[in-house]
Design a protein around this nucleic acid. Structure first.
Lengths: 123, 123, 123, 123
DNA sequence: GTGGTCTAGACCACG
DNA sequence: GTGGTCTAGACCACT
């Protein structure tokens, strides 16, 4: 069963989008494996404190992207082949890093200072 | 006059929220200085291709947060003393970096691989 | 035993609601007589290709409305005296006809054209 | 401006579906003409006492069916060519009449009695 | 129990 | 003002 233990809800982006991202990260990292069951709408809704419909929307988009499969009345499962996993991983790695690099540049940081800061934060 | 040259609309966060963030980054970096004029609603609207109302909303929130002030006419000025600038800068630096570090960890990256990736992306 | 031969799922109303309506029509027409047994949930479920829970819901509402009674075991019986049958029949006749007449009027049909069309459709 | 004067909300079918139907009837009857403006989401919402989102859903489906056009920030207009109007009219005429005829048959009415009843109800 | 849909209210971006 | 989207709660149908 896919776990949402270290999921944290942030403010400014849509909730369903954050859930999609979290699931994709897990799949890309191999934490979430193929054919693994994901929490039901109600279960995750209760866990995260958001409306079941928001979960439903996230799952629906993940299904359209070919990452999970859902059947009415049955549980939902992760269904992502190796190619999809690689693509997602690459998208997330470069996308996130570009975002951070651009933010650091905009803040006037040198590459060295930024990398040093990242090292410190990593712990 | 403050420049918005390298501003791009990226993620699915609200546009006004991205503008607020961009202005704060500029202030935190010292690119936008105290008492400096920021573009009028209409000018920035044309530059970013965004509706003037959306710019207006961003400026209004910045004003409520005490980061800018609107004087006579449509002109607005940055109003942030050294302490405020430092606080904003620290919030943005640690916030953004934590976001990136957490994403990399979640993706199963080692610290070394992540830093190497960042170096590559930095260019 | 009551027959559900010519029942078809048509519109976008809830299925249980269509079943209720169908049963009432049968009673109103005298096809389904008082004290007559109606199909078990499971039998009707198989016949209509509808989930037993949905049949159950329809029967439950019919029972609350005093149109059927469930006795020992899973058997249910029609329980409608002459007065009730007359009332239901009148409601359905006028209700359905008003719906159709209003639709025809809204579509700009004359009374003669509408009746002619109905004759043709009747076959 | 398209009027919703004689619109009545019924119970068992989805509200958005009833609105779609009403608009289509008006177009099919020529009451609602091409290029005519339809009430805004908020206006119709207030008039019918339903949520703006429900109106939105109805309008969205009508747009997908090529019956109206909407543009963000601007008003919405009917946009149905002659062929579309003819198709809609035919669908509604036969569909509604078949529904009524089947209901009458199920209620054990003869063709003559049913037509007589319809004449009476027509007034 | 499961997923899917309908209705609702508030917010976002645009003209 | 306009239409579009996000979140929410209740209900429907199915395993």
């Amino acid at each position: 069963m896919v776990s949402f233990d270290d999921f944290v809800l942030r403010d400014d982006c849509p909730i369903y989008s954050q859930i999609i991202r979290y699931v994709k990260q897990g799949i890309a990292a191999g934490i979430i494996r193929n054919q693994e069951e994901i929490p039901s709408r109600r279960a995750l809704s209760a866990l995260l404190g958001v409306n079941p419909n928001t979960i439903q929307k996230a799952y629906h988009i993940l299904e359209e992207e070919g990452v999970i499969v859902s059947r009415s009345g049955a549980k939902s499962f992760v269904c992502a082949n190796g190619e999809t996993v690689s693509r997602i991983r690459m998208e997330l790695l470069t996308g996130d890093t570009e975002l951070w690099v651009n933010a650091m540049k905009r803040l006037g940081m040198t590459r060295e200072d930024a990398l040093k800061l990242a090292e410190d934060v990593w712990g």
